[in-house]
Amino acid sequence: MTADHSLFAADLVVTGTVTGRGRLDVDGRVEGDVSVKFLSVNRDGTLTGNARADDALLSGSLVGTIRANKVTVARSGRLSGLVEYEVLGIEPGGLFEAECRPTTAPALETGRRAATAGAEPAAPGRARRLAPGPA
């Protein structure tokens, strides 16, 4: 792992607030709030709480609220709660039981400009814009 890439191993349980400017891979369990640039909840990982990220890939389980510019629920992923997103993708087989709120506001204060409204074509294996944010 590098200084901007962290891994919470399968046998790790983290309770509390996690913040960082890089990537976080969760193979274990997080109970609390997470704020990182890229969040990956892997197949056996779980996050219960609130998450903020520029980009989030959910192959495991997230129960709570997530605010991200781009959220992808993989076929093994489960999302339950509230999702605020700019771009949302759900692969076939992914479990999605969430209230949706499209937004064009950046999830994190990274100086990144919000994407323009309008549909984007989906590249193979990538999420696509399902709904533009509010005007």
Rank of each mutant, 00 (worst) to 15 (best):
E99I: 08
T104A: 06
T110W: 09
E86F: 01
P102S: 14
G89W: 00
V71Y: 00
V71D: 02
L82S: 06
L88C: 00
L88Q: 04
R75A: 07
G93R: 15
T110V: 01
P92K: 14
T116P: 07
F96C: 08
A117R: 15
V83R: 06
L82Q: 11
T116V: 08
A117I: 12
R78P: 01
V87S: 11
A105C: 09
T116A: 14
L82W: 06
G81K: 01
T110K: 02
G111L: 06
G77Y: 01
G118R: 08
V73C: 12
T104C: 12
G111D: 07
A98E: 08
A117N: 08
E86A: 07
A107P: 08
S80L: 01
T72W: 02
E99W: 00
A107W: 05
S76R: 04
T110D: 14
L95P: 01
A114Y: 11
G94N: 07
E99M: 05
A114K: 14
A107I: 04
R112S: 07
E97N: 12
A114R: 14
P102E: 08
G94H: 05
Y85N: 05
L79M: 08
F96G: 02
T104R: 04
G93D: 11
A105K: 12
A74Q: 15
G77L: 05
A117K: 12
R113K: 14
G118T: 13
P106L: 03
G77V: 02
P102R: 07
